[in-house]
Amino acid sequence: MQDTMFIGLDVHKATVSVAIARGGARSGEVRHWGTLPHRSDHIRKLAEKLAGDGCRLHFCYEAEPCGYGLHRKLTELGHGCMVVAPSLIPVTGT
């Protein structure tokens, strides 16, 4: 069975901060991977590096003014990518 990795992205105009979590156990390690320039070639290299050991990648980031170019790039590379609108995330009791 192919291992799964979840990648959370904090996207800004000039940079993308990356956090990763291995799939499977809820108690798995979540860690900051690093920050890279918000450029298509760097995004491609990141995906290649993370998928290099045969992992299936699932990216997620908050909808922001920079648009869906990042989403298009990641799905074009064959990876899952979810763009989340913070206003649509359910919150528990108030």
Rank of each mutant, 00 (worst) to 15 (best):
H79T: 06
A47D: 00
M82R: 13
H32Y: 13
E29C: 03
T35F: 02
L50M: 04
G93M: 07
I43V: 13
D41W: 12
F6V: 05
T92N: 09
S87V: 06
M82G: 00
A25K: 15
V30L: 14
P90E: 09
G52L: 08
E48A: 12
T94Y: 12
D41S: 15
T15Q: 00
P37G: 12
K45G: 10
P86M: 02
A21W: 02
V18A: 01
R56Y: 06
R31L: 10
V91E: 07
G52S: 08
C55T: 01
T92E: 08
H58K: 12
M5W: 10
R31M: 11
K49S: 13
C60K: 03
T4K: 10
D10Q: 11
W33M: 02
R26W: 12
L50C: 10
S17A: 15
G93A: 01
D3R: 15
V30N: 14
R31Y: 09
G78H: 08
H58E: 08
C81G: 07
F59I: 05
H42S: 15
Q2S: 14
F59W: 05
L88M: 12
E29D: 14
V83L: 10
L57S: 07
I20A: 15
V84W: 00
K45T: 05
L88F: 05
E76C: 08
V84D: 01
E62N: 01
R39M: 11
H38A: 13
L36E: 06
A14C: 13
S17F: 09
V84P: 06
G23N: 02
F59D: 02
K45Q: 14
R56E: 13
Q2R: 15
A19L: 09
E62L: 01
V18C: 01
P90Q: 07
A21S: 12
L74I: 09
G52P: 02
A63H: 03
V18D: 00
L74P: 05
A51D: 00
I89G: 02
C55W: 05
Y68F: 13
G67T: 01
K45H: 14
T92V: 08
A51W: 03
I7D: 01
R44F: 03
D53V: 03
S27W: 04
G23R: 01
H38C: 15
A21L: 08
T4H: 12
V83G: 07
D41I: 09
A85V: 03
H71P: 06
I7F: 01
L77F: 04
C55R: 12
R39V: 11
P90R: 11
V18F: 07
G28L: 05
G69F: 06
K49Y: 13
H38I: 09
M1G: 09
A47T: 02
G52Y: 04
I7L: 00
I20Q: 04
G28A: 08
G69I: 03
R56Q: 14
E29A: 06
C81I: 05
H12R: 11
T35L: 04
I89L: 10
C66K: 01
